[in-house]
Nucleic acid binder design. Sequence first.
DNA 1: TTGTATGCGTTATCAC
DNA 2: GTGATAACGCATACAA
Lengths: 349, 349
Amino acid sequence: MGAEGNYQPSIVITADVLVKELGLSPTAISQIINGKGRYSEATRKRVLDRVRELGYTPHAGARAARLKRFETFALFNAAPFWQGIPHPGIYEGCMEGCADVGYRLILESVTDKGMPGLRDRSNLLGQRVCDGLLMNYHMQPPDDLRRLVNACGIPVVWLNVQLSENSLYPDDEGATSTLAQALIAKGRRRIAYVDTSPHHDYQTPDGLRGAHYSVSMRMESLRTCLEQAGLPLVRLTPGLKDFDERMAAARAFLKKPDRPDGLICYNEQDAQIIVLAAAELGLTLGKDLGVAQYSEHPDILKRPIATALIPFRDMAKAAITDLVAAVASGERSLPSRAIPYTFALESTL
Amino acid sequence: MGAEGNYQPSIVITADVLVKELGLSPTAISQIINGKGRYSEATRKRVLDRVRELGYTPHAGARAARLKRFETFALFNAAPFWQGIPHPGIYEGCMEGCADVGYRLILESVTDKGMPGLRDRSNLLGQRVCDGLLMNYHMQPPDDLRRLVNACGIPVVWLNVQLSENSLYPDDEGATSTLAQALIAKGRRRIAYVDTSPHHDYQTPDGLRGAHYSVSMRMESLRTCLEQAGLPLVRLTPGLKDFDERMAAARAFLKKPDRPDGLICYNEQDAQIIVLAAAELGLTLGKDLGVAQYSEHPDILKRPIATALIPFRDMAKAAITDLVAAVASGERSLPSRAIPYTFALESTL
DNA sequence: TTGTATGCGTTATCAC
DNA sequence: GTGATAACGCATACAA
C-alpha cells in the first residue's frame, strides 16, 4: 500500500536541467548520453549517474526531428472481420525484435471494412511517424493496398504472405515435407489431409476472394510428397460448417475399413475433431494413428499430437532485422523468403 | 503484379513543400490542416486537396516537440513467463480506443525475468515518449513497480487488476452472480465450481507469490451466491497437472450419484474437460448439465456452453477514455472501477 | 484573412 | 576535453 499517491513533482526533466545542474554544455550532456565524443571518465560518470537518478530520457520527438529517424517501426494489422485474434507470435516477435535494436513499436489495426479510405485515416502510412512498416495482412493483399504502402517511401515487410519481394512467410512446404517424411518413416501408408474449415471462401468487401496461401500450399505440398513416395492422398470432406457435422464426418472417416493411419490437420480445430473421434472409436494416438497439426503452440492439453510450430515469432524478428538493414542502406526492395518451422512431439506420429 | 517497384520518389513532403507550392504562409497551412483560423472555403479546399494528393502528414516528432503532447499512449505488457499469449481483447480495445481519439499506440512487453532493471531498459517509463501508460500486469503488481510507474509523472491505468486507484478490471463478482442466478433459475441445485489449473502457485522471480484476483474472486462470489440461496458449493479437485489426471477427476466427479447439475468453470480448459467427460458419460449439455465458463470468446466449436464474456475490450477502451481525460485535466488519480461482463448462450444453462 | 518571428528539446558540426 | 551555434519541422502569439 505504500506505493500509492507517490507522484513525482511535475517537473519535466530535460537535458537543460542536467546542463544547469552539472555545469556542462548541452553538447557534453548529449554526447555522453549517446556514448560519443571523448570525455574524462569522471565527467562521464557524473553525468550518467545523475541521468539515472533523475530518470532522464531524451524527448523522443525532438530526437526524431533532429536525427531524421523515429527509431520506431509500425505493425499494421489488417485483420479480416472473422479473425478477432491476430497471431500472438507476430506481436511478440515484433516486440522482441524492436527491443533488441532499441526501436519502439507502434501498433495499428484495421478491419477489411475499414480498408477503403484507409490512407485518410491512418497517419502511419505516411513517412512522418515511423521508419518502417510491418504489414500483417491475412491473405494476398489487394494491389491498391500494395501501391499505397509502396508509395510511403519507407521500407516495408509483408508478414505471413508470399509476394515477389518484401515478404516473409512460414515455410509450409518444408514443414509439410518434414511431417510427411516422418509419417512415412513410421510406416504409415494411408496418409490423410484434414481441412474442414469453411472460412476459405472468405470474401473481402471489395469483392476480392481468396484464402491464406497455406490453405493450398499445405495440401499441394503433401500431395507432391506422397506422390513421390507412391502413396495416395486421402482427404476428409472439406467445407463442413459446425461441430456436429465435422464430428460425424471424422467418425465415418476413421471407421472405414481402409481408414487413414496418418493425418495431417490444417489447424488445431481440425486436429481436435480427429482426436475426439479417435477417442470415441478407441483408436490410440501414436499407435493406431499418427496425428499432426500446424499450430503456433503444442497442444494445450498435452495430448500426443505432433505439431509443426508455425514460426511467427522468428518471422517477425527476421522482419525487424530486415527493416533495420533497409533503414540503414536506403534499399527498398528486399527478397522474399521462407522461415523454417520447428517441430514438437514428432515421435508421436 | 502491377503493384511492384512502384516507389515514390524519395522526396519528403513537409509543410514547406505545401507553402511553396500553394504560395501560402506556414501559418495558413498549419491552421487549415488543424481546422483552426478563419480562411476562405476556396483556400481551405485548395490546401486540403493538395494535402491528400501528396499524402502529407505532419512530422510526429516536430509536432510533439511543439505541442508538448505526443498523441501517443503506451501499452506496457508485463507478462509472466508462463503466459505467452496476452489477451487479444486488451490489444484490440486499446487500438480501437486510440484510433477513436486520434492517438497512436506504442507497445512494450517485458517478462518477469526482465523486471529488475526495467527502468534502465525501457524508455517508455519516462515522460518523454508518450502521454499516458496502460499497464497490463498479470497479477497484483509489486510495490516497486507501482512506485516506478507513479514516478513517471504521466497518467497511468492498470488493466485487469484491482488496486485502490487507477485500475480497471472485469466485474467477476457480477458475472458470477449472473451465472449463479441463471443456474438456480433453471432449477439447478448441485452447483459446482471447477478450477483444476495448477498455475495459481505462480511465483515471480523476486519471490512474490500470487495469482490473478479472479482466481479467488470467482469462487468466493459463487460461494456467497449459493449461500444466500441456501445451496452448497461443490468443488472439483483443484491443482491437477495434466490432461489425463483432469479427465479422470472430471469423470469421477460426474459419475457420482450426487453429481453436480450445474458447473461454473474458471476457464475454457476446465470447461473443455467437463464437456469431454460429460460426452463420455452420455450427459447432455443444457439438459442433464448446465455448463458455464468465463472466457474471452464463446466456445470455438459452438458447443452449448454458457459463456461469461470477459470484457477486456470494453475495459481497454474505457482505459483510453480515462487517459485522455487525465491528459486534459492533469489529474493523476482516477477511481478504480469494475467493467461489466456480457454473456453468450445463457439459455443453455 | 495572412505573414513574421519565435521556441519546442535535441544532436551534429566545427571551433577552441 | 569541452562549448557555441545551427538546424530539424511544426504551431502559436502577435503584428499587419
